[in-house]
Each structure stands twice: as structure tokens, then as C-alpha cells.
Amino acid sequence: MKWGTWLAAALSGLIWNSALAGEGVQSSCEGCHIEAAAAFGRSAMSRAASTSTFLAEWKHKGEDKACLACHAPSGGAGVQCRDCHVGSDHPFSKLDVPNVCASCHDAPGELTVRSFLRSEALKDGYGCLDCHTESRGGDVHDITGPSRAEFLTRVGRLRVSVATGPQGDVAVVSISHSAGHALPGGTSGRAVWLVVEGLDDVGVAVWRALTRFGWEYASDGGWTDKTLKPNRTAIVEIGDLHRAGARKLRTSLVYQFTAGEYDAPEAVHEQMDQVEISFPSTKP
């Protein structure tokens, strides 16, 4: 395969000189490492500084250069070959995953790498690439994640019990997930919501309780990590279930791609799991 790569490079008219002559670094890598380049081109990382979502928020932040330290450290449309393959001499030495990812995925507000280091997934021998590249072709650069919504199915799991307590019925919801790190994994703005609704006879929600998992900040600028940790079940209890004539309970786990409130008009959601429970008809 390596000789194939080399041959393809030779046939496409590229010679070592073009790399040595210091032409555009990315294009010179691409010319020889066709497979790696094609695979990385499919990853959202390669476009991290050019999506409409990024550009809108970046503009809003006064085009702060600090953003590019992670979104496009070498300029261009996004993350590039040399942002991971650091060092001086080609061919570069083998990368140390996940340390090489930490420069962007381990920061205040970005706790993917550090929560991974405490996960059972690591103890079981999984690495970042085992979970993030399996779906396509097998190239290490085919790194996908929640930018493809299918990636989020079967990740989060809800269990619900309704128990009778001294104050009446209580719904006890437990949430667990199979990501090898915190959920949501990264940015301070994304969130996972637990949405619990009481439904009437015809299935219309008559009440709703929202719980947010993600990063939150206080007005003094202090940040709190309220993400769902790996290998830990989060528990939420909700009382007064029969209020407003509710006959059913609907519990949903929803991933929110956009920052802000659950009901914000621009919110983009993906449902991860849902459970419905009917109350017995003998209940008021």
C-alpha cells in the first residue's frame, strides 16, 4: 500500500521536489497520501473553521484569533495534516493518541480527553480511534462523531421507575451512556437534555420538567461541569406526576447541537432515547 501510494504520487506527476520546495503543505501531503487525505477530508475537523455555524459564532466573537488555535491552527478551512503530525522530519514519528488530540480536546470546557483517561473504555483497551473511525473504510483519518446524527443512536439509555413515596408518586429516571468520555463530549455550548412530560388522554403534554447536562457558568464567570460522566448513572427524581390531569409520562433524552435554551428557535436537536409509561387507570 505504501508503494502504491508512492506510485500514485509518481504517476500524478508529484515528485519529492514539490514537497521540498515548500509548496502548500496540505496539498503536498495530499498529493502523496491520497487515502489519508480523502479520509480526513470527510472528517468534520477538516472543515472546523469554515462551517456556517463556526463562521457565524466567530463573527459574533469579533473574529477572535484565539478560536483558530483549535479550529484552524495552520490556517485554511480547518484542522490540517501538520496540526497532528508535528515534528520536523518526514516521515513523521508515530503519533501518541490521545495526547496528540489533547491540544484541542483537553481544555477548560473541553474535557473529552481527561474524562476518557478516567473511563472504563480505556481500561477495556479502547482508544479514541476504535470508536470514532469504525464506521467507514477503516482509515485512521476517517474520524467521525456527532456531526453525523446517526452517531448518537444507541449511545444514551434511559430507565424509568414510578414509585410511591410519602409525597405521592415519584418518577425516578436514570441516565447512562456508552461514550468513552463525558456526554456531551466537548464544547461548553452543547448539551444533553432530559425532558420529562406529563401527557393527557390524547397525548398532549400538560406539564414538562427539563434538566440540562453540559457546562454552565455563573455570572462571576466561574464554570461548572455538569456533563454526564462515563460509567456513571445520573439520577433525576420528579414528583407530582398526576398534576394537570396527566395520564402518561414521556421521558426523552435529547442531544442539543446548538448553544442556548432548549426552546430557542434556532435549537437543533437529536433524540437519543425515549420511554413512555401509562399510569394505571385507578390513579386519580
Partner: peptide
């Protein structure tokens, strides 16, 4: 407060 932006901390790693 729920963050309004996706990378509000914007702090280098």
C-alpha cells in the same frame, strides 16, 4: 447561565 456560544471559554488547551 446556559452558555450562548458553543466555545465560550475559548481558552487554549
Amino acid at each position: 447561565i446556559i452558555p450562548r456560544g458553543l466555545c465560550e471559554m475559548n481558552t487554549p488547551a
